[in-house]
Structure formats: C-alpha cells, structure tokens
Computed example of a mutant assay.
Amino acid sequence: MTGFALGAEQEEWCGQLRALAADRLRPLADKGEPGRVNRPLLAALGELGLLERVFTSGALELCLLRESLAYGCTEAETALALQGLGAHPVLASGTPEQRARWLPQVRAGRAVAAFALSEPGAGSDAAALALEAVPEGGAGRSGAEGAPAAAAAGGGWRLSGEKCWISNAPEADFYTVFARTGEGPAAKGVTAFLVPADRPGLSGEPLDMLSPHPIGRLTFDGVPVGPQDLLGQPGGGFRVAMDTLNRFRPSVGAFAVGMARAALDATLAHTAARRAFGGVLGDLQAVGHRVAEMATRTEAARLLVYAAAGAYDAGSPDVPRRSAMAKLLATETAQYVVDHAVQLHGAIALQRGHLLEHLYREVRAPRIYEGASEVQRTIIAKELYR
C-alpha cells in the first residue's frame, strides 16, 4: 500500500467481502432475533474463515475486513468484532491450556466470547473498576499485606460485584473479566481473568438497548477464580485491556467508515435518480455540495483509520494517539454522513427495513463504546502533551 491507496489485490478482496456480506451473511442476519446472539451467523463466519482472520490478520487487514463487512451487513461485522474483542486477551495473554480450550471454538463460531470491562460506575473511566477479587480466606479488597501474591500462588480469589453494558452478555460462553486485586492504586491494582459462563455464582440479565446484539448485566456473587484463570499477571489487567483496545480502536473506526460509505453510496444513487424541481436532486447545488462534504469527510476518516492501523502494524510508539484519533474522527464522521443521508432521502429513509433506518440506529453506539468520543479527545491531548 502506497500513500494509503489500496493495491489491486486488497481492492479485490474487499469487493469479495462486500459481496459475501450481502449475499451470504445478510440473509442469516435477517433471520436473527434482535438482542440475541445469532449463532448461525457466527457459525457461517467460522466456516468462511473470517473469524480466523481476526486473530491472524494485522491491524490494517482487520480494518479492511471490518469495513467491508459493515458495508454489506453490520450484524456480521459486529458479531465478528465481538469475538475478537472478547478472545484477543486469551490469544495475547492466556496460558497454553486456555488457548487450547477456547480459541479453536471461537474461531469456528461455536463459542461466544465477551469483553467484560465496563461497570455501573466505571464505563469510560476503566481505572475506576470496583469489581472485587477477594483472596480466598481474605477479609476484603485491601486484605492483609501480600494477600494478592498469596492468592496467585495458592487458593485464588472470589469475584464480587457487577459488570454492566457487556456485549454478548448474558449469552456468552466465557468472559474476559477485569477485577480489582489491589496490587496498587487505580489501574495498577486490576487483574484480568478468563471466567467461563457456567462458573458458580455468575449470573446475568439482558438489558433492553438500542442494539441488534445482546448487551447485558453480569452479577458476580463470590465467583471462584484461581491462578489457572489468570490472563497475564496479577496487577497487569489494565495493560491487557489497553493492549486489546489499542488493537481494536482503529478497526472500530473502520466499522464506522463502512457504514459511512454504504450511506454515501445510497445517497449518490438516490440523488442521481430522484426527480425534483425539473431535474434530479443531484443537480441542486445545495444537494451536490452536501454530498461532496459527506464524501470528503468519509475519505479523510478512511485515510486516518488506515494510517492508525499501519502505525500499529509497524510497532509505532504513537499508536494510542493515532488509534484515538482514528476512532474519534471515523465515528463522528459516520454519524454526520448517515444523518445527512437520511435528510437527503426524506421520509422513505425512516421506513422500517430501509438501509438508512438501519444505519441510523447502528451508527450511534460506536461514539460511546470502547471509549466515548470525549475519552478519545482526552487520550489525544495527553499524548500530545506527553
């Protein structure tokens, strides 16, 4: 790739993915029940080898995959991305036993993964987690001095508290869970665990959200976890979380770019054909200028997403800043483009089942999850002043 223009093979692959999303995955998505895990769709993603690509692709290829699927089937894109988000910590920080147990099932679309970070009082402020990991035999979060190390060496912990707004909950088969073990203050005292859904004391309930996939609340009532459930080291959970988010944030931007491009293409087709005022809508300067602005912003977002992914693949030290910029610009741009696409289509775009009615519902959430736009601006500012 030169100057962030895709090569012929990349363009061909993206075209194949868009066609696959529309022809093979869209029908499966349409048969799914809103707010429930679509397991036939996940199985198809596994059979087509697309879930495997989530774990073997570089960041740029992951962006192309998510953008292309989002163009033709946002539900397929989201299902794929959530598998990656929930299982990437296992790939990056799990034990050989954990990887062997779960990753083949995730890649095949047979096991559903979830990333359980957010809490009722700790959404964007991930360092403020309150879910307690109390050492077995300990008295509480603070416990006795050296209790976390003793737990790691021996009996383990009991998880107590809540997680909220967790994608794929309560239907996931396992959760990457971040809890406070107390090795240090704030982010330094967080540990990551792999918690199977059938672990005693773990329960969940769905939340009625503006989302086609399940989002739920998890309750941990003394859920037992041991050294064999650790993802990384005690006290190293915040790094596990941030490494995962830094990898996926540019591709959240790619998801947004895919939606923006779908909305833009629909708008071009509509305004070129819709007759009004003695011509077509596209002849009106106000319409043409608005479409030009939509196209320019979409292209700028696409280039920034690709640049952030390229920086990640190159091991650049400025990945946090670039990832935050890419997610910020792309998700805000997608909101702008979809909103103006609806305006230029008029009332038909609000009809249930219309592409833009669907995109209008889908496009709002990415400005919040994996770090709201305000959090991305804070990250960018901190990195600039560092």
Rank of each mutant, 00 (worst) to 15 (best):
L284Y: 06
G35W: 07
Q16N: 12
A153G: 09
M294N: 02
V342N: 00
L328C: 11
P170V: 07
V363D: 01
N168P: 08
G35E: 02
E47I: 10
E61Y: 10
A127Q: 15
A381Y: 13
R302F: 09
C164F: 15
E77D: 06
A273I: 08
P224K: 05
G216K: 05
G138H: 01
L303K: 12
G143I: 12
M259S: 06
L45C: 01
H270D: 03
A334V: 09
R107P: 09
D265F: 10
G138P: 00
L91I: 13
Q10G: 10
A300S: 12
A300I: 14
L50Y: 02
Q335K: 12
V287W: 04
L355E: 05
A87R: 02
T219P: 08
I348Q: 04
V338P: 02
T333K: 01
R249I: 08
L45M: 03
M209P: 05
I215E: 00
P40K: 07
D339P: 11
A147Y: 00
G282K: 11
V37K: 00
A130N: 08
Y306F: 15
K163N: 01
H270K: 05
P234D: 05
E374L: 13
V54F: 02
T191E: 03
R217I: 13
A276M: 12
A8Y: 10
R18Y: 11
A59M: 01
Q228P: 08
A111M: 06
R361E: 14
C73K: 00
W157G: 03
P224W: 01
A108F: 04
G58N: 03
D221N: 13
Y360N: 13
E162T: 15
G237F: 03
V190T: 08
S251C: 13
A22E: 11
P34T: 10
V240F: 01
V240G: 04
G86A: 02
V287L: 00
R290M: 11
G189F: 01
K31A: 12
P185R: 14
K31L: 14
H270A: 04
A81N: 11
G288H: 06
R101L: 11
Y71H: 12
S142H: 14
Y360T: 14
E61Q: 13
E9Q: 12
A326C: 07
E183G: 08
E293S: 11
R18P: 12
G146I: 02
G121E: 06
V257W: 00
G155K: 07
G161D: 04
A19W: 15
G204C: 05
A8M: 10
H340R: 13
G109M: 03
V257G: 02
R302M: 09
Y385L: 15
A8V: 14
P96I: 10
R377N: 08
G138T: 07
A301E: 02
L17T: 08
E293G: 11
Y312V: 11
V342Q: 04
A326M: 02
G58L: 09
G7N: 09
R274P: 07
V375G: 02
E119M: 07
R199Y: 09
T95N: 00
A341T: 04
C63L: 06
T331M: 06
F238C: 02
L207E: 07
A5L: 14
G7S: 07
R290Y: 09
E299S: 08
V37D: 03
G189P: 07
T244Q: 03
V338K: 00
L48I: 10
Y306M: 14
D283T: 11
G288Y: 06
A116W: 05
R66P: 05
L82V: 12
